[in-house]
């Protein structure tokens, strides 16, 4: 079969991207291989581990479980968007670093983007520890036992709430 190719337009971390892509390629593959955004990690490649989580129009999605063409017209955020313009860690990243959230950190991009979407939700009070655990339950970490990761997100939530009320 000759390659089935279609145009794809989306914004990735605020930049407009226009490509022509083969229909069978996933969003994760396009991000990593065509756009060089290798912060998005691929592990299980069938939606179980959460390492490839990115934000699509503000919502957490598995980029390995989406054809890139399904993201046509959408706004993608990847883990590369979380740092400040000068490359310094963003607040969520800093909170997780301060909590020693990760060890090998292969899973970190997925956890960070899942937490990023949770923190971006418009709500009066930040999520509780139980809610954080529930929201992170779709991301696997084989190093830490998760407590430090939940600690890190909780630390970010606390800082966010304090900043809002300041």
């Amino acid at each position: 079969m000759t390659a089935d190719r279609h145009p794809l337009s989306m914004t990735v971390n605020g930049n407009r991207i226009d490509l022509v892509v083969e229909s069978r390629r996933t969003l994760a593959e396009i991000l990593r291989e065509d756009l060089g955004l290798t912060g998005t990690h691929l592990a299980c490649e069938h939606g179980v581990c959460g390492a490839c989580t990115v934000a699509l129009d503000g919502k957490a999605v598995r980029s390995c479980l989406m054809l890139a063409l399904q993201a046509d017209g959408g706004a993608i955020e990847t883990v590369e968007s979380l740092c400040d313009d000068d490359g310094a860690l963003g607040p969520l990243q800093q909170a997780m670093a301060d909590s020693h959230s990760f060890q090998c950190a292969f899973c970190a991009p997925g956890f960070l983007m899942t937490a990023h979407c949770l923190l971006a939700e418009d709500r009066d009070i930040g999520p509780t520890r139980d809610e954080i655990r529930e929201e992170l339950s779709g991301n696997l970490c084989r190093c830490t036992g998760y407590q430090s990761i939940v600690d890190g997100v909780e630390r970010a939530v606390t800082a966010l709430v304090e900043a809002r009320n300041a």
Partner: peptide, 9 residues
């Protein structure tokens, strides 16, 4: 049903 990211899609 799955997890949040699954339910989003």
């Amino acid at each position: 049903i799955g997890h949040r990211a699954i339910r989003n899609r």
